[in-house]
Amino acid sequence: MTSRTCRSLLAWLFLWVLASAVLPAQAHKASDAYLQLSRKADRIDLRWDIALRDLDAVLDLDANADQKLSWGEVRYRLDDIKAYALGHLRLQEGQCVPAEVQPPAIESRIDGAYLVLQMRAPCSAATALSIDYRLFQDVDPTHRGLLRAQAESAATPLLRSLDPSAGPVSIAWVGSEDAARPASFLADGIHHILIGYDHILFLVCLLLPAVLKRRDGCWTPVLAWRDAAWPMLGIVTMFTIAHSITLALAGLKIVTISPRIIEPAIAITIILAALDNIRPVLGGRRKLFSFLFGLIHGFGFAGALGELELPTGQFALALLQFNLGVEAGQLAVVSVALAVLLGLRNWRRYPPLVLHGGSMAAVVLATVWLCERVLDVKMLPFS
């Protein structure tokens, strides 16, 4: 097999992997639900906040198909909703059965409306509680349940991120090292960037021209990997600093911006970054715009931790772990993509096919996302 054939296959493989990553992309924020448990003597009080958009996706609550959920539509299906939710949550292997103590309510949050279920489960005193959380396991592999559990005598809450596909987990209420040890949100940060297809697509758009240099109006490959890696490191560093700032500001609720603004803005950053690969529209100031765009993407990473209402010290640690996870996932994406592009840089069809073709594909996909997010409609069957 010739080197030209190898590069062609590598190029098509790269484009196929990229398409596979972005085509199933969700058009909106990652799916989260909030589960709060409070232990009092021989009972557990439970509050469960579930996004209506997620419930609609699995139960088709929008009876008149007008893309809006009314309280009447939700109320009409409350029995189905409660049956579905409780059918995907088991406490202490089914020995602690939650029962409703207050009527369900709808609460508006910055990222949309949530159904609030408030329940109580008689449960014998024990040092540990088994939780089998499987909400949306069958329809959304990206979903996570954010657990906040606190015993009556405990000074600080215990935190966990519940993966519906991971099986039952055991949390310790008191008298255990696990109860005192803060939960790690490092894996959640990695998970968040890896399912953030719009963030990944933005990074790839930044990477595509990194292995080339424009000379006399023509693209030529860089001679050494360092010629691509060091400039790219500067751009990614600016992006990282920026989104770390806004992630912290949003998580601390110092600055809050609705996803209705942020999600379309993220799509616009992808369009601009991709267009700049075809015809310079950013005036050669890619580091500056990487920083400015990173500020927008940081708000896209935020949200979930702020809803947990943690003590300051615990929140700071969780935020640091989450951000480190985001950076680790981002570094993995950049490293793999840059290595592949370096291997393709001498291919004569790289500029027209990979750089221009890939950028145009990114423009098209990001434009569809923009329309979906602005108009709140579904245009792609897989989004």
Rank of each mutant, 00 (worst) to 15 (best):
D178M: 10
L338K: 06
I271T: 03
L61W: 04
L275Y: 06
I190S: 07
F239D: 02
N346T: 14
N64A: 02
T237Q: 05
Q330L: 11
N346R: 15
D56K: 01
E73Q: 10
S383T: 14
R348Q: 12
L117Y: 09
V326F: 10
L247E: 01
H191A: 12
V17P: 07
G87F: 10
I278V: 14
P381C: 09
R144A: 03
F299N: 00
K378F: 04
N323G: 01
G343W: 11
R109I: 00
I171N: 01
H88I: 02
F293C: 08
A19F: 15
Y197I: 01
A63E: 11
A151D: 13
V368W: 04
S130N: 12
L147Y: 01
I195V: 15
L117A: 07
H143K: 06
S153K: 13
S184A: 10
G306Q: 05
G358S: 09
L353R: 14
D56R: 01
C371T: 12
R226L: 06
P311D: 00
L203T: 04
W48T: 00
L201A: 13
S359M: 07
D198P: 10
T312P: 07
D132W: 09
L380Y: 08
A33K: 00
A85S: 14
A267G: 09
L310T: 03
R349H: 14
A51C: 08
L305W: 03
S290F: 05
R348C: 07
H88W: 09
P221L: 05
G303M: 04
I271M: 15
L158A: 02
A63S: 14
M232P: 09
A27K: 13
G306A: 10
F289R: 02
A21P: 11
K82Q: 15
Q95A: 15
A33C: 05
L292Q: 03
A250R: 09
A154M: 11
I245E: 02
N346H: 14
V374D: 04
P141D: 02
D56V: 02
I262K: 07
P141I: 09
T2S: 15
M360V: 12
L295F: 10
Y84M: 07
N323P: 05
V116I: 13
A11K: 06
L9N: 02
R349D: 11
L355F: 10
G303K: 08
A265Q: 05
D111W: 04
P182N: 06
Q118K: 14
